[in-house]
Design a binder for these strands. Structure first.
Length: 275
DNA sequence: AAGTGGGCCTGAGAGC
DNA sequence: TGCTCTCAGGCCCACT
């Protein structure tokens, strides 16, 4: 499941392979993603040059020429498969859009579960609701005081709050579980019970874990691969995620990792270490 | 009015 | 072995 580090890794792969190249041909195989691809999608992008790639939360923003941006979200199972010059395009069953670039590079947007989205916007893309209310980028200027401020009036659990993209952008279930473990904070705590000091710790651990994961090329769960098909390595480092019933990684702790459901999503934690 | 939970979707894995 | 069933979860939106 692509969270911030995976999306960042994909964006870097795309930047290295695609920047400055123009679309010479493209094909839409399926329009009915969760948000339908507009019918004139290909027509509007044909001939456009990829001038800039950026990431906001879990979205990739592809600047296409001067005034069109293509907004890309990988949902749960989305991938970008890039085929450099000399490597033949190998079609996947769920390649919804295939782009051919002017130098012979080809790339495909693949998403079996179709939870992702791909749409066009203009220079004002940040004004769309999903970006206008999006929270801070955790790797930018983000302090414990900032997090404390956004939590102090919230009653929802700290787990739910960290998943809320309006509080902080880019975190998903895996990294939230891991960061709460590292900060020794119980995921069922109410947001407004988190102290300034704890908020500071959380910010530090969220940033650490995201940076470590980006360094190792993102996590690899069943759905995630790099743009060249290789795997990331960070998943070997999970302390709690998907480890229900296994022993707590802390040597001096005899407890097992628990799995509970919060707001419809699995939470993994150690009830002895996380207070 | 903030918080919760259903719906979307397919493939992997479990269980019989 | 091969089938069926359950579960995974990011985001949107309806409901309370």
């Amino acid at each position: 499941m692509p969270e911030l580090p995976e999306v960042e890794t994909i964006k870097r792969g795309m930047a290295a392979a695609l920047l400055g190249k123009s679309i010479s041909n493209m094909r839409v195989n399926r329009y009915d993603l969760r948000i339908p691809i507009p019918q004139d999608f290909a027509k509007r992008l044909m001939g456009k040059t990829i001038t800039k790639l950026e990431r906001r939360g879990k979205y990739i923003i592809m600047h296409m020429g001067a005034d069109i941006v293509a907004i890309l979200h990988m949902g749960m199972s989305g991938r970008i498969n890039i085929f450099p010059v000399g490597i033949e395009y190998a079609a996947q069953k769920h390649d919804h859009v295939v782009f051919n670039m002017d130098d012979g590079t080809c790339f495909a947007y693949e998403d079996p579960r179709r939870f992702g989205m791909l749409y066009l916007a203009d220079k004002d893309w940040r004004k769309a609701k999903r970006f206008a209310f999006m929270g801070v980028e955790p790797l930018d200027d983000w302090s414990g005081a900032d997090l404390f401020e956004s939590l102090k009036n919230k009653k929802a659990s700290i787990k739910s709050a960290l998943l809320d993209q309006r509080v902080v952008a880019g975190l998903g279930n895996i990294y939230v579980c891991e960061a709460l473990f590292r900060a020794y904070i119980n995921p069922t705590r109410r947001s407004n019970s988190i102290t300034k000091e704890e908020a500071g710790k959380l910010v530090k651990h969220v940033r650490d874990i995201l940076e470590e994961s980006i360094k190792s090329g993102g996590s690899t769960l069943k759905d995630y691969k790099h743009t060249d098909g290789s795997l990331g390595y960070f998943q070997h480092g999970f302390a709690v995620y998907d480890r229900a019933g296994k022993s707590c990684p802390n040597k001096d702790c005899a407890s097992n990792i628990l799995r509970i459901v919060q707001a419809g999503r699995s939470t993994f934690y150690c009830s002895s270490c996380q207070k």
